[in-house]
């Protein structure tokens, strides 16, 4: 009997917690909140979401972000709930030092693959880098947070276990509800948090980068997300 009461209490607490936090988005996702310290941050101008006619709803903002991500090749993403808003998390991708995504299948593969033999100038350049330079590979995850006010990040960076859990979490599709009713008012902001990681061939550990060598806007520009966000529908 006592066991049944305990189960009922736990279920009630869980249901109550979820209904409060997930007012907007049904899937709670795997985004740690408050988010850990990002390697780079970019405030996406609200004007990008302003269309010529009518009031802009959160749903429209989400559609716009989805459209930009689709255009830039981020077809897998995760929708997470944030108090009075939502967050879209992209799948972890490998990118080059200049911010451009890695080519082909390497972009979405978190495992480090050996160099392929290419007998041309760029192949020789790559070989030279691989022969003398440190075996380091750059990865990133972009998180778009849409909520009223600034995003307050945690002071600490992601630890290895948290990184591993977060990085390996599958990107799930989520059903959105109630977003249609909330207007994207002046106090709402869209912030892009860029989480950069380094992976060394020497130890295969994902190391969070405290401060990215690129600006947040450069990450968005080089990944082409900025171009598609800028475009008017």
């Amino acid at each position: 009997m006592v066991r049944w009461i305990a189960v009922i209490v736990v279920v009630m607490v869980m249901v109550g917690g979820c209904s409060r936090g997930d007012r907007i988005v049904e899937d709670a996702g795997a985004l740690p909140w408050p988010p850990p310290r990002a390697s780079a941050v970019c405030n996406v101008p609200g004007a990008f979401f302003q269309e010529s006619g009518g009031e802009v709803m959160l749903h429209d903002v989400l559609e716009k972000i989805y459209g930009a991500l689709d255009g830039a090749g981020y077809e897998e993403r995760q929708l997470c709930s944030v108090r009075d808003g939502f967050a879209v998390v992209t799948r972890i991708e490998r990118f080059r030092k200049n911010g451009e995504p890695a080519e082909g299948g390497e972009r979405w593969d978190s495992k480090i693959k050996p160099l392929e033999l290419e007998i041309n100038i760029s192949g020789l350049k790559e070989y030279g880098k691989a022969l003398f330079g440190p075996d380091v590979y750059c990865f990133r995850r972009i998180v778009f947070v849409v909520k009223p006010g600034q995003v307050n990040e945690r002071n600490d960076a992601l630890g290895p276990r948290e990184t591993k859990n977060w990085v390996s979490s599958r990107v799930r599709s989520a059903r959105v509800r109630d977003i249609d009713d909330i207007p994207f008012s002046a106090n709402y902001r869209c912030t892009a948090l860029i989480y950069e990681f380094e992976k060394y061939k020497m130890n295969d550990q994902l190391i969070p980068v405290e401060t990215s060598h690129l600006l947040g806007k450069t990450h968005l520009e080089k990944s082409k997300v900025w171009k598609f966000l800028e475009q008017k529908q």
């Binding site: 022969l131 003398f132 330079g133 440190p134 075996d135 380091v136 600490d156 960076a157 630890g159 290895p160 380094e198 060394y200 020497m202 130890n203 550990q205 190391i207 969070p208 405290e210």
Partner: peptide, 30 residues
């Protein structure tokens, strides 16, 4: 010469994460 060049450019340099005395994760260079 190859080994010296690798040494100078930083071939054997890498980072790893360990817990410090306060049980907090720290990135260290090796």
């Amino acid at each position: 010469s190859l080994l010296i060049a690798q040494n100078i450019v930083g071939k054997y340099y890498y980072k790893s994460m360990i817990k410090d005395q306060y049980n907090e994760w720290q990135v260290i260079s090796n």
